[in-house]
Amino acid sequence: MAADDSSNTQAGQSGLVVRVPEAEPAVRVWRDRLGPSARAAVPAHVTVLFPFLHESRLDGDTLAAIDGVIGRHRPFEVRFERCGRFQGILYLAPEPGTPFRRITEAIVRRWPETPPFGGQFDDIVPHLTIVQGQDDAVLDEAEADLRGRLPITARVSSVDLIVHDGSQWQQRAALALR
């Protein structure tokens, strides 16, 4: 989550993420040291939507509706070959990014009150955040280290609904792409 500094996250907030365990060996040391979501128990991931619905709204009917929207999308292969940057953030760019955007757009069509990152950004840029809140020298160092560990390939077959308990993120549901 690009804006995922978990120190600013409140209990009950939720998000939708695609876990990328294949990336862990390459990014773990950087995420553990300089990625706030790793400290809040979130593994390497591409954010589909954050923030999403408050936990109080995640009843059985809502979970079924989320599953229905996500289930209309097919599993896909993704490859991480390059890094990208936002201000103070280093990330891995997934290719293709379109399937992630389509899932995000479908969820937002169903729940328009949940724009990506609270509506802070105009474009949906799928990414796997590695380092956050650092200067260019640190980002340069991390990027140089990561170049030798790429590419990373993964199969995306589910989206996780995660909920913040006040200190860490907990998986609430794994929703299959079909």
Rank of each mutant, 00 (worst) to 15 (best):
R101L: 13
R149E: 14
R178M: 02
L63E: 01
L90K: 14
G15C: 00
A137S: 09
A137I: 03
A23G: 11
P51R: 02
L128Q: 08
E95L: 14
F52L: 09
I103D: 07
V29N: 07
P75E: 08
Q134G: 05
F121R: 13
W30Y: 10
A40M: 03
V125K: 06
E24T: 15
G15D: 00
A44E: 05
C83H: 05
D135I: 04
R31A: 12
S37K: 04
P112Q: 02
F100T: 03
G71I: 02
L175I: 12
V156N: 11
E95W: 03
A137H: 02
G84V: 07
G148F: 01
A41C: 11
V138G: 00
Q120L: 15
R74W: 00
A176L: 06
R85F: 01
W169D: 10
G71L: 02
R57C: 05
D160K: 08
V159S: 06
S56C: 01
S167Y: 03
D4Y: 04
V46I: 09
V131F: 03
V163F: 03
I162M: 15
V20P: 02
V159N: 06
H164N: 09
R109Y: 03
D59R: 10
R79E: 15
T98M: 14
A44Y: 04
S37T: 15
G148C: 06
P116W: 11
Q13G: 01
G119H: 03
R82Y: 04
E81Q: 14
R31S: 11
R172N: 01
I130R: 01
I162S: 09
D67C: 06
G12W: 00
L90D: 10
T9F: 06
R102D: 13
V159Q: 06
L175M: 14
Q168I: 12
V138I: 05
F86G: 13
T129Y: 10
V108G: 11
D5L: 01
S6L: 00
R72K: 13
D136Q: 15
Q168N: 10
R178H: 09
I124L: 14
S157H: 12
L150N: 12
D5F: 00
D145S: 10
H45G: 07
N8A: 11
R110Y: 00
T9Q: 08
A64M: 06
E77H: 11
E55L: 05
L49N: 08
P115I: 08
R110V: 06
F117H: 15
M1D: 09
E81I: 08
G60T: 12
T153Y: 04
L92D: 02
G133Y: 00
G35C: 10
A93T: 13
D5W: 00
T129S: 15
T114E: 03
L92P: 01
V18A: 05
R19H: 10
L16I: 02
P21I: 14
P99A: 00
G68P: 01
I107V: 15
A174R: 15
D123G: 05
G12M: 01
Q168Y: 03
L175N: 06
H73D: 02
G119M: 04
D136S: 13
D136E: 13
Y91T: 07
A11K: 12
L161W: 05
A41P: 01
G119N: 04
A3P: 02
T153N: 10
